[in-house]
């Protein structure tokens, strides 16, 4: 079956995405040198989330997909976050 309206990412745009990801990696390694106390994990996770979003949108071509799939992917992450929160309603108050 022929792919109608193909979306093709250019080599250079993919290379730029990689550069951003490598920079973020370096940044997260560098920033662990500082001590934010309880926030260390939060900072590391925020950077990780940014990286994951970058991969999803660019490498996995989510930017070319329909709205429904975008919502689904977001929804899956939201569901998982809710599961974590609900579990911690137990652990946090125990």
């Amino acid at each position: 079956m022929k792919h109608e309206d193909k979306h093709i990412s250019s080599y250079s745009s993919l290379a730029i995405v990689l550069a951003v990801l490598l920079f973020l990696t370096a940044f997260s390694v560098w920033i662990t040198g500082f001590h934010f106390g309880a926030f260390t994990v939060a900072v590391a996770l925020i950077i990780a989330c940014v990286k994951v979003a970058t991969v999803l949108i660019n490498f996995m071509h989510l930017k070319f997909e329909n709205l429904f799939l975008k919502l689904l992917v977001t929804g899956v992450f939201v569901m998982f976050t809710l599961v974590i929160i609900l579990t911690f309603v137990d652990y946090y108050f125990r």
């Binding site: 609900l86 309603v89 137990d90 652990y91 946090y92 108050f93 125990r94």
Partner: peptide
């Protein structure tokens, strides 16, 4: 399980 989790 914690009380809060139970009622929730």
């Amino acid at each position: 399980m914690s009380y809060n989790a139970r009622w929730f």
